[in-house]
């Protein structure tokens, strides 16, 4: 293996440069959210001013509130519908199942801009007033698919004999679902739920087309600030958003850890 030593050395250096490329922008963004200087990217001293300003900005607080409402409601609806779909798809046969299966994947793969404009045209067509409700509906639409995919993956890894055993031991179908199926797919449901919330929380493009007056979400607010130009307030709100997502990822990974633990128990 000695011959490939130089190649290995180069690969290692390359890998760390790529990781530097991936993380440096994020680190820079966070560091400069604490910088006193407003215009230039020169470090002049530490401050928390930009964070204070964010929380004094009524529009910003309103956008955070809107994003939370949209995220929570759309996640709740999508988690229920997506989980039901996943269970139904894994269990039943029905006509046009393959067609439904394809349609279920489409919201994940078609370009966001197409989904955004088609919903805008649809809302205008049925004369539905754009606002928080129209964003929630849009978010539920793509999140059903994401939740269904995640929960289905979990169901696919489940031992079907466990349900059979419960039924044989005299459990009713409801009891079997409540005490066997549900606990087994719970990590999948939680993972799907966290994914749905993250996608809703981060979505700019679809909200951009389906929002109305007064329903500006956080990404829309950030976007309008970016369009206005670079400012330390954007760095500050970016840092908060990053922190928030990191916490969600951490929870998701913990849940995944639980999944692995139960898998080894099987």
């Amino acid at each position: 293996m000695k011959k490939i030593e130089p190649a290995r050395w180069m690969l290692g250096t390359h890998a760390w440069l790529v990781y530097l490329f991936i993380y440096a922008p994020i680190v820079v963004l966070v560091v400069f959210s604490f910088n006193q200087e407003r215009i230039n990217a020169v470090w002049t001293g530490f401050t928390l001013d930009w964070y204070v300003r964010l929380f004094q900005d009524a529009g910003m607080l309103r956008a955070i509130y809107n994003s939370l409402i949209v995220g929570l409601i759309s996640t709740a609806i999508a988690t229920v519908l997506g989980t039901m779909t996943a269970i139904g798809m894994s269990r039943y046969r029905f006509p046009l199942k393959r067609v439904f299966d394809s349609v279920l994947y489409l919201p994940i793969i078609i370009p966001e801009i197409v989904m955004g404009v088609s919903l805008l045209v649809f809302y205008v067509f049925i004369q539905f007033t754009l606002g928080t409700a129209s964003i929630i509906i849009a978010h539920v639409t793509f999140n059903i698919s994401f939740v269904a995919v995640v929960v289905r993956a979990r169901l696919a890894g489940m031992d079907p004999w466990l349900e059979q055993a419960a039924l044989d031991l005299g459990a009713t179908p409801f009891q079997t679902f409540r005490y066997i199926t549900l606990p087994l797919i719970k990590p999948g449901i939680i993972a799907g739920m966290l994914l749905a919330f993250t996608l809703s929380w981060d979505d700019f493009l679809i909200a951009f087309f389906t929002a109305g007056v007064g329903s500006t979400t956080l990404p829309m607010k950030v976007y309008s600030m970016i369009k206005f130009g670079v400012s330390p307030e954007i760095n500050a709100i970016s840092t908060i958003t990053l922190l928030f997502t990191m916490i969600l990822i951490f929870i998701a990974l913990r849940v995944e850890g639980v999944t692995h633990a139960t898998k080894t128990m099987d």
Binding site: I22, Y23, P25, I26, V28, L29, F32, A41, T198, W201, D202, F204, P219, V222, Y223, I226, V230, I234, N235, S238, T241, L242, T245, M246, L248, I249
Partner: peptide
């Protein structure tokens, strides 16, 4: 991990 963080924020980082 960075893939799960806000798209807009990551794009803004490059603008910065």
């Amino acid at each position: 991990i960075p893939f799960w963080t806000n798209f807009l924020v990551r794009t803004y980082a490059w603008m910065f």
